[in-house]
Structures are given as C-alpha cells and as structure tokens.
Design a protein around this nucleic acid. Sequence first.
RNA 1: CGGGGUGUAGCUCAGCCUGGUAGAGUACUGCGUUCGGGACGCAGGUGUCGGAGGUUCAAAUCCUCUCACCCCGACCA
Length: 575
Amino acid sequence: MRASRAFITTLKEAPAEAELISHQLMLRAGLIRRLASGIYTWLPVGLRIVRKIEQIVREEMDRAGAVELSMPVVQPAELWQESGRWQAYGPELLRFKDRHEREFIIQPTSEEVITDLARNEIKSYRQLPVHLYQIQTKFRDERRPRFGVMRGREFTMKDGYSFHATHEDLVREYDNMYATYTRIFQRLGLAFRAVAADTGSIGGTGSHEFQVLADSGEDAIAFCPQSNYAANIELAEALAPTTPRAAPTAPMAQVATPGTTSCDAVARLLKLPLQQTIKALAVVHDNEFVLLLIRGDHSLNEIKASKVPGLAPFRFATSEEIVTHLNCKPGYIGPVGIDSSIRVIADRSVATMHDFVCGANAEDAHLNGVNWGRDLPEPNLIADLRNVQAGDPSPDGQGTLDICRGIEVGHIFQLRTKYAEALNATVLDAKGESRLMEMGCYGIGITRIVGAAIEQGHDERGILFPAAIAPWTVCVVPIGYRKNPQVQQATDTLYAQLQAAGIDVLLDDRDERPGVLFADMELLGIPHRFVISEKGLAAGTAEYKGRRDAAPLAIALDQAVKHAQTQLQANTVNA
RNA sequence: CGGGGUGUAGCUCAGCCUGGUAGAGUACUGCGUUCGGGACGCAGGUGUCGGAGGUUCAAAUCCUCUCACCCCGACCA
C-alpha cells in the first residue's frame, strides 16, 4: 500500500484525554479516535492491526476444531430474563426499547443466545461435542471506562462456547483451548502468562486467565519462579504459617498513641515491626456487625472474604456503626474486650501471632503485648482473608511467590451446566435419557490486545509492534521520491518485489521531508524499514534497519527482498 | 456511584485571580527557499471561549444551574 492513500493521521502531541502510554500512542499514531467515553472509531491503520489479530485468532480456533458463526448484537430481553441475567447483570447491561416498547439489550456476551440455539438444534449426544465462536462487537456500560481501548465500553471480543455430553469431554476441550490460547498469544508475539482465576459462583478449578505482562496492568498475578504455579491474586491462597503460635512473653499494656490511626504509624511510634500489629476491619453482613483481623503489613482480599461461610455479601461498616458497636472511633478499634456477640474472624497469619499490638477501643490508645486465649478469646473463625505478597510460600509447596502485573486478554471457563439448566438445554444420552449439556466458554479481548501489545512494546519514538500484528511488516522510505527519477524507479521496483514475495509492505510516497517520514514510520511501529536514497543507489545498496536496531545496515539492492524474508523469519521464530 | 480536576482554533495550551478589541505554538492554504531525522521566510483562513440563565454600561473572566470529558477508589475481555 502507498502511504499517500493510507489515511495516515499522526499527531505530534498526545491529546490531553490520554494518560496511559498505549492510549497516547494509539491516538498519536492515528489508530483510534474517541467518539464518546469508552467508544472509539478505528481508523484504517488501526483496523489493519485489529484484522491481523482477528485472523490469527480465527486460524487457530478453526485449527482447534471450533466453527465460526455470528450472533446478533441486539438481543431480546426474554432470553436474558429466562437466564436470570436480566436482573443479575446490573447496570452494565445496556437496555433499550424498540418502537413497540419491546425490551432489548446490546450483547455483553452471548451465553443466552448460543444456549438457545443449542437447545433448539442439538437433540442427541451424537451431535456433540460442538464448539461455536464469533468475533463480535460487545457493549458493557462500564462504571468507569478508561485507558482508551483497554477498558472501553464498546469493544471486539472473540467469544466461543462449547457443548458436551459429559464433564470429561468438557475438560478435554478446556485443555484444548488452553493449548490453543497459548498458541494464539505466542503467534501474536506477546509476553504472557496463563494464571488460575476465580470461578465465582460456578466454583471448582475450571478457569484460567491469559494475562499480558505489563507494569500498567490492572491485575496482580502471583507466580512461583520455582514451579509452574501462577494465579490471579484474587485467588492465590495464603498458606497458614508453619510455625506454631509462641507463648506470651509480655503482659498486655495500654499505650498512648494520640492521633495515630494506621498500623504503619503505630508501629513507627512504638518502634515495633509492622508485622507485630493487627488491623481490625469492621464489616456488616445482613445487619450483623463482624470484625475481620489482618496483620498490619497485609491487605484484605475482598474476594476471599466474600467466600467465608456466613459472611457474603458484606460491606464495610460506617463510622456510626463502629461507634455503636465498639463505643470507639475508627482508627483505634480492636478485638479485645468487645461484646462476646460480635463475631471475630481472623486471618490465618493473625491466629498464630503473639505479643501483638491492636487498637484499644479507646480514642488515642492501642494495646501492646496482646495474646490470644489470655487477653481475649480465640477467634470465632480462622480463614484465609489476605492477599498474598512477594516472599510468601507458594501454595503448591515448591518455592516462594513473586508478584507481577498483567492485562487480562483471554479467559477460559468451564461453565458446566449453569446456562443449560437455566434455559433447559438437554440432549438424549445413549440410554435415551435426557441430560443437561455441559458448557465451556472462551473469550479473547481482540481490541484490548492492541493496547496491551503497545503497553508491552514502545520506546521514546513510538510503538514497537510484533511483526504479526503490525499494520505493515515492512516499509520502504525513499529520500526524494518525487524529485529523483532513479530513486523513484528503484523504490517502485523494490516495492513491487516485496509485494510479489507476499510481504505486507508500505511505500511511503508522501511528499514530505525525510524526517517526517522516518518519524511516522517509527511512531507506527513498523518492524522493518528500507531506505532508498541517491547516495545508496550510487553504491547499489538500500539501507535496512529493524525498528529495534541501533544502527542501519547497507544491503545490496538485489539482496533486499531476501534480507527482508530472513528478518521476518527470525522474527516469527522469536515470537 | 463517591472523591478530585478540566472544558478557549483540528491538536497542545496561555488569557480568568484583578470584567473592557480572543491569543501563542503546532496543524492547515498559497508562494519562495530547503530536502537523510518532525525545516525556514512571507502572506492567509480558522473560534457559537462546552451549553443555559443571571449580575453588569460591558462577561472567556464574577454567580447559579446543566452537559461533556479526564484522573483516583469498588467490577471485567
């Protein structure tokens, strides 16, 4: 393609709306333009990237035995009412009425429609397994759209759904998808990690997220360098300390801590390690006031807390409620001397502490040297309540955990019979008996991948796209294309040769100074560049430079195509 | 939804406090010079100052309301 026809609309400065580097670069490179909050136009250059990602996903899904279909973006409310998600999904589900006052939604996913299709079309176990997928526009009315295309409201997702006669067969397909997703993200040229994920209301272990590793990611990942363990921090188990609780060595004493409300500040005031303090978090479940105890240097994992039997759903108590139940302002509350009707749930690490520090339930005061059994009753319940942190033992017992951040770009999930049950999707088994179909679902955030790839690959000059998803893999930049006939002829020849070799090449024929051309090609992240100049032609060479290379290389003109092919080959192997 | 912030030329922003002719850079158009790293000169076009109401002789500027957008926290590809 010729750059003069490609609708390249780059910006020197990033619009003020963008905070994240990938968002800034996408705007500057002219990949997207914002239409409304969380809603973007994909400009021609950006769309090329999206299409390349889609194509890789499509090829690998097809290779894995899935078949593509397309379901409507607009779906009738009835199916969503039948599944219960009309109520459960909440305000993120965009609803509207047609001219007949009938209610509709714009799909955030398509479990209802696919299950409806399956129950109508699939009657026998002999028709199974089936795996159907689509690459479609989704809409989720996010509370807070941000980071451009990484958390937009309208986005493109590949969503696949598989149907099975048995759970064993679902597990087989789940493993198949795990391998397929691994291939897809490898082909896309991304550094990623598959991590165990929360299965929410379904339970069990059947869910993995595929996370692109990036410091700006919204998710925290706990992984073990010594083993294969990796999990979303929401899920990663914090093991109970192996050393038993030590005997008390000090009497309990009240100490004055005026104006000192955080564990950190208390520890500094008393010159004690933060690990010796306890923070009490007051929550309310179904009108019951409950105290959760976490070690001072730990943070509460709300997902874990909401899984504690008899605690979900919970919310944090208000200041007024805290004063009512503990007769003390927040900041100085603790588990000692409280009404015995108040349940105390302690994190595993708290349960083995001794001689610890906690709030005294009196303003400007804490207690030091507190010990379980002696100064207060044993906790009503001991549970895993905290987020793991770096240095914690790995749950698989094979080393210590480290923490990194990631961007979720894929998620695979064993749905089991949740939707089949809600929509009564059954087949007859070999004995002629009716059985619910087992279901899996598998998502890939196509448009999010563009942002994630840029987040992972950029420098001060712009984007560093992996060759597989770059808008063009090679560009040819002539110096003096419109002024020097020799340059023009040599450029056209190389361009034609590269095209004939099946390479996706961009010829920058724009009537601009060389600096502008170089700057744009680098901003766009095109991985390979040839420069044709009068100087080079005199020596019979073109100049080659990889986007990540420090210095250019002179290549004989008749070797240029071969050189490009070699570079692309190397690039593919790397990816 | 709670907290913070911003709306002035396509883009980045100044002007607002202290009311009085709407500005700069960049981008755009024309001409000339320049041409291997986002050139230079000259000339030119560019705005309902987010919107509505109010105060005032006079509002981008002060007041009220409203809308949009961005950032920080609870959800998800």
